[in-house]
Amino acid sequence: MNRFSLADTIEMSTIVVLVKQVPDTNAKIAVQGGRVDLSTVKMEMSPYDGFAIETALRHKEATGGTVTALTVGAAGTEKILKDAKAMGVDNIVRVWDDAWSELDSNALQSVLKESIESLGAHAVYCGKSAADTGAGSTGPGLAERLGWANASNIINAEFGDAVTVSMPVEAGVAKISVPLPAVISCDKGDFKPRKANVKGIMMAKKAKVELLTANAPASSVVVAHHSMPAAKPAGKTYEGGSSASEVVQLLRDEANVL
């Protein structure tokens, strides 16, 4: 009979949650000199990341382990790490190199892969997309680089040796068993992000941000410029509900959409 203790044989889960700083989704966006001007816009954690943190914390509560929140960004992005800490994550990590400016998806995911591997993660959670680009590339792209399973846009999860997620598919909602290690991206679903309590906020103030760096390949996709969407010409306005019949006729004759 082997004489290890149980604690030696069960590997504690190392869970990483990816967070990103984006402009407040209620803010107006302006373009100055061909670039988006964010100088007066409040920055915040991308809303879907809150669902990812909540899911990661529930994973830890179910199986044990630690949750590390990680962002890629300059020093100004540390506030969202503190917000994650206040919600209850154990560790906060910022990955950056001052030589970086804009990382394309290939460069960003290479950086994330290296960082995730150096942290020894078993499960990575992220928001289904960030509120800036809305691309949703990071979760599945990172999973592929790591050679891990992934599930996207999940709305519920149960935690065990594998994570059983609920996600929308063409026919309805599928329950899918995702073996670990895996990258899982979270939609707004059954898990409401918990609010930080006073103790959490106090601990977050004192928490130390761990700094990492990684190798980033040169970007082949570069931002050329930003622009505002074309303004729509002014529409027609009617008073009173009886005008609805006229509008229906115009939808047929003028807009040609009925």
């Binding site: 729509k232 529409g235 027609k236 306005t237 009617y238 008073e239 009173g240 509900g241 009886s242 005008s243 609805a244 019949s245 509008v247 229906v248 006729q249 115009l250 939808l251 047929r252 807009a255 009925l258």
Partner: peptide
């Protein structure tokens, strides 16, 4: 942002809208 705006409550508008659509 509307091409066609109707300033009215939905209670008075939707029945008319619905009837016109059904007729069309």
């Amino acid at each position: 942002h509307a091409d066609y705006g109707i300033v009215a409550t939905w209670e008075e508008t939707l029945p008319v809208f619905q009837d016109a659509l059904s007729n069309l």
